[in-house]
Amino acid sequence: MRERNTSARRSMMPPVTLYDSLALGEPLLRPVPHPAVDTRGSIWLVGDWAVDVPPSPPRPIPEAARLIALVRDRTGWSARRLAELLGVSHSTVRRIAGGQQPKAAHSGNLPLRLRGVYDVVDRIYLLQHRDPSATAHILDEVIPGRRSAVSELRDGNPAAAYLAAIDALRPPRSPGLLTGDRPKSAGATAPLHE
């Protein structure tokens, strides 16, 4: 009965072709060791073969991620503080800093706002002799009768933010004619309006 069962199974199996025996091969009597792979140099060694692997060029950092990194580096701001200026959540800033592209549906014109913030921060950073804490201080400083640069950036006015930061760096002079602090010498002539 057992013999009849195995012959029935053999008749149901497709016949072994030349392709099957070539593709599957004969069973091996001993295990085949895997070739040693040495990847320490520019030329990899795989068993006895030398494989020259060309160096892969580094992938470029997305523009938005690069700008976020530069702004944070030049001001010392946290992701939450930068997100407050850009009008997005801090998780959005962190995702973009990680390399994700900003989505227009979620963030509107975020790349344009980010470019404006970077332009102002970069210029003030250079004027402050590349000092991040001094840059952040100038951007936060409020001059009487004027808003701070951070407030202007929050409202999306990079040009007004730059002017506010410049005024914080070099306060405007008092209105009126320029007058000297030294008395007029004896032989000096006076202007006609005096």
Rank of each mutant, 00 (worst) to 15 (best):
P111Q: 06
S185Y: 13
A69S: 15
A168K: 03
L28I: 15
L127S: 07
T179A: 15
T189K: 12
M13W: 09
V32H: 09
H106W: 14
I96C: 00
L110K: 02
K184Y: 09
S174P: 08
A36L: 08
M1Y: 13
L70C: 05
V32S: 13
P55A: 07
G76T: 06
A164C: 02
N5G: 13
D38K: 04
A134G: 12
T135M: 01
D119I: 00
S42W: 08
L126D: 12
L178Q: 15
S21R: 15
Y19R: 15
N157D: 11
P33M: 07
A8K: 15
L169P: 01
A136Q: 03
P175E: 15
L85D: 03
E63C: 01
D122T: 00
R146Y: 07
Q100M: 10
H137L: 06
P35W: 10
Q100D: 15
A168R: 03
R182T: 10
A83P: 01
T92A: 15
M1P: 06
V150N: 04
A190H: 09
P171W: 04
V37N: 04
Y19I: 15
A79H: 04
T75W: 01
L45F: 09
A134D: 11
I166H: 01
L24Q: 13
A65G: 02
M13I: 11
R130W: 08
H129S: 12
G116C: 02
